[in-house]
Amino acid sequence: MALLEVDALQTHFRTPDGINRAVDGVSFHVNAGETLAIVGESGCGKSVTAMSILRLIPEPPGKIAGAIRFNGKNLLEATDKEMRAIRGNEISMIFQEPMTSLNPVLTVGRQIGETLRLHQGLSAQAAEDRAVEMLNLVGIPEAKRRVREYPHQLSGGMRQRVMIAIALACNPKLLIADEPTTALDVTIQAQILDLMRDLKHRVGAAIVLITHDLGVVAEVAERVVVMYAGKKVEEAPVHALFNRPRHPYTQGLLGSVPKLGSSLTGEATRLAEIPGLVPSLKQKIPGCVFASRCPHATDLCTAIAPALEEKAPGHVAACHYALREGALAA
């Protein structure tokens, strides 16, 4: 049984001018100890998916439907009290903005200790000792002194390390990281990604990594879910996705990112564009959500929404024209 199973998740928001279908029927699973990346552009619903798993969506105006099974238990049916026992304990989350997601008026030691005291009933002293251990684990020098400092005394990279320390304090089984390195500089990003890889081996938590950066995906993920306009359009092991993307959107996405070293290999001098814009999520789209921007779209695509089909072992895509394994390459 998978650690986390998301089944036909729908997260809709009621707005003054109609229902916003932010996430519209997304299913995926995460095995224990695995790293799954969810990629897509802004507005594709990847962050809302993450927030829905932890039930952090305010209801109303939001409405979550479907099923989210964690260790077999449907989180959508859990009471608030049960959810509180899970958040930060069995499932924890790292947010994008290390500047705004820490409390500015509490020391980092208090903030790391808070989850420990709440979930594990540690005393104040034991919680602080454990906080020092956690700071050491995430590579913050002079942890004994830093544990008494406030977030404003730390740099962006250090704050993100503190966020990771808080998230891992209770040895969660699942860590959801929502754009954990987007706000960081590239040399600091490399440090944090390295840390996450290292900790994953040591702590053994499964990770759901939400990002728009395909480079980060290639470096850390084992499996990838590609989202577009609230729907899952493709899912594949990381090598298969990058080497043989099946969905035209994934193909476009990969083509529009320049690779470092392009000037040395003399590759194409023009980036592939995906023409047009992401459609509004407030209108119901009868056919394929990507049809309006797809170079291969036909009448069939605008009329009937393609179902997710297994195109190769473990590789699913929602496209009428994506080739199955064995068929001739397009």
């Binding site: 590239v186 040399t187 990112v257």
Partner: peptide
């Protein structure tokens, strides 16, 4: 700086200089 940029190619072997 160059070695820190994540590359959109999974499984590549590269020399990393982490500052």
């Amino acid at each position: 700086l160059l070695s820190a940029v994540p590359q959109p190619t999974p499984g590549i072997q590269r020399q990393r200089v982490i500052l």
